[in-house]
């Protein structure tokens, strides 16, 4: 464990907590893409298959349970909670996210570190996470006024993977044989997808104006 990865995990945790805070306290999911939440639930479900078979550390197991529990409960809230579901804008959240799942699965079957079920599922979860934010970014461009919590949620979600990139650089230089091209490239693609959001988020913070993405 290194400071970059720990900071990345904490940032990821913060993004999940911000989203749960928004949904649980103000009972609203305005501006939140259900499709991105469903993709993330699938990412964690396919990435943490080793939850009960491989014990790495208490921290690792605890965080996996938190990410699994929060992602599925957020999907439940937006889909079934009688108040929250009313604020879900399904007419705007129209990204065909199923079109993301199949290509990621096919790619994982083709390009992986080892052709075993768990390794292919793990690779699939990496590719899927790289594109999981797309429905949310599309929804943000359609939603004129982005509320602070939603903006913070997306910012933290993008920042966590950027910190992971620093973690991979650190591990590459400190651990012999630590080479994971698949992880690195999908993590880089994921972070680059946030590039324009980060730009507008920083601009809105610097000029102290409401966050707005150009249509």
């Amino acid at each position: 464990m290194n400071i970059f990865r720990f900071a990345g995990d904490m940032t990821h945790l913060a993004s999940v907590l911000v989203l749960l805070l928004k949904i649980h306290t103000i009972k609203s999911c305005a501006g939140i893409s259900l499709k991105t939440q469903e993709l993330y639930a699938l990412v964690f479900a396919t990435r943490y298959l080793d939850l009960f078979t491989d014990y790495i550390s208490l921290y690792n197991t605890l965080m996996k349970l938190i990410f699994l529990g929060s992602s599925f409960s957020i999907v439940w809230y937006i889909r079934y909670h009688k108040i929250v579901r009313r604020s879900y804008d399904k007419d705007q959240d129209t990204f065909r996210h199923y079109f993301l799942v199949l290509p990621c699965l096919l790619l994982a079957l083709l390009i992986n570190e080892k052709f075993t079920f768990r390794e292919v599922m793990w690779t699939f979860s990496l590719y899927l996470e790289a594109v999981a934010i797309l429905p949310q970014l599309v929804l943000l461009q359609r939603t004129r006024n982005i509320d602070n919590l939603t903006g913070q949620y997306v910012f933290l979600l993008g920042a966590y993977r950027a910190l992971y990139i620093l973690n991979w650089i650190y591990r590459y230089f400190t651990e012999p044989h630590y080479v994971h091209w698949i992880t690195w490239i999908s993590g880089l693609v994921q972070t680059l997808l946030y590039a324009d959001f980060f730009y507008y988020y920083f601009q809105s913070w610097k000029n102290n104006v409401k966050l707005e993405l150009p249509a």
Binding site: R5, T53, D54, I56, N60, E119
Partner: peptide, 10 residues
Amino acid sequence: TYNGYHHDEL
């Protein structure tokens, strides 16, 4: 490693 499975990151 854990029976060949070596992913220790979240």
